[in-house]
């Protein structure tokens, strides 16, 4: 601190506490709503204290989904989300490690061409090529499958750049020593480069897990039965304004937030590192 101004310090705390309250408020309201029954909520004055129906709402959501018949249970949606998020994360990290390794540690024709090709993906988010990408996936017969849900999303320019940058900082002596000892490129990659990259892998894991779990537009287009939980919530809302089962929707919302928020809080150090490094 530069100087001691008790008033300014108090003001800072007050603003920060107000900020935290503001940021938490929507979640708090959702949490409260998930403990009331629908009738209390429909009167719009459920108040800000918990009601008695916590268990009923969460178990309804978990085992049946919304209470319309034929609805997808939330446990199944969460499983789909988990598979999608993990597959996207692991594949993105794996193929980016491999391509960064090739680009940094080999000299071959079209090397920079490949690099720029990967760079271009930065400029082509799903949102700008929705229809043709959908058509490609449909033609490959991957609609409504885990493959269709994940594979089109696993190319990653940011992850490749991050690993490329990191590999550049690895001392040349390591590769030299490995070569003198007779280790081939793959052995060097597995036994030296990979263990050294673990902090970067952890940082990317947090960012990419959140990216995967929160996917919306893509699963909305190509899945039908394979509902992810983020999609599931919005399908629960699409029943007209009067009959939305808000307590169950809010219970689902809370459950849908738990895995990514948990990952961020558990791996906060790597998360901050990942955020700041992937933007370089």
């Amino acid at each position: 601190m530069v100087e001691n101004r008790p008033l300014y310090t108090w003001l800072s705390h007050a603003v920060l506490i107000a900020g935290v309250v503001l940021v938490f408020f929507p979640i708090y309201v959702a949490l409260i709503a998930s403990t009331h029954d629908l009738r209390t909520i429909q009167t719009a004055n459920m108040g800000l204290l918990p009601g008695p129906h916590f268990w009923r709402n969460y178990s309804t959501a978990w085992t049946q989904g919304s209470d319309i018949s034929g609805a997808t249970p939330v446990w199944y949606m969460m499983l789909n989300s988990l598979v999608m998020a993990l597959v996207i994360t692991v594949l993105k990290i794996a193929i980016s490690l491999l391509s960064a390794f090739a680009i940094v540690y080999f000299r071959f024709p079209f090397r920079m061409g490949f690099f720029w090709l990967i760079f271009i993906t930065l400029m082509l988010p799903v949102e700008v090529r929705i229809l043709p990408t959908y058509e490609v996936v449909a033609r490959l017969g991957m609609l409504d499958s885990y493959a269709g849900l994940t594979i089109p999303l696993v190319a990653s320019a940011t992850a490749t750049f991050l690993f490329r940058q990191f590999f550049m900082t690895v001392p040349d002596e390591l590769a030299e020593a490995a070569r003198i000892d007779g280790a081939g490129p793959l052995k060097f990659f597995r036994d030296m480069l990979l263990p050294l990259s673990m902090t970067n892998v952890a940082a990317l894991f947090v960012i990419l897990f959140i990216y995967g779990w929160n996917q919306y537009l893509w699963p909305l287009l190509i899945t039908d039965d394979l509902e992810t939980v983020v999609i599931g919530i919005n399908r629960m809302l699409a029943v007209g304004d009067g009959q939305v089962n808000w307590p169950v929707v809010m219970a689902t919302t809370i459950m849908a937030m738990i895995p990514p928020v948990f990952v961020v809080l558990l791996m906060q150090r790597w998360f901050v590192k990942g955020l700041i490094e992937t933007e370089k």
Partner: peptide
């Protein structure tokens, strides 16, 4: 090594674009 990344880039990014 670059094949998986490049294949996905070409099939799902460049071609649709």
């Amino acid at each position: 090594l670059v094949l998986p990344q490049i294949a996905i880039t070409l099939i799902f990014f460049i071609w649709p674009a």
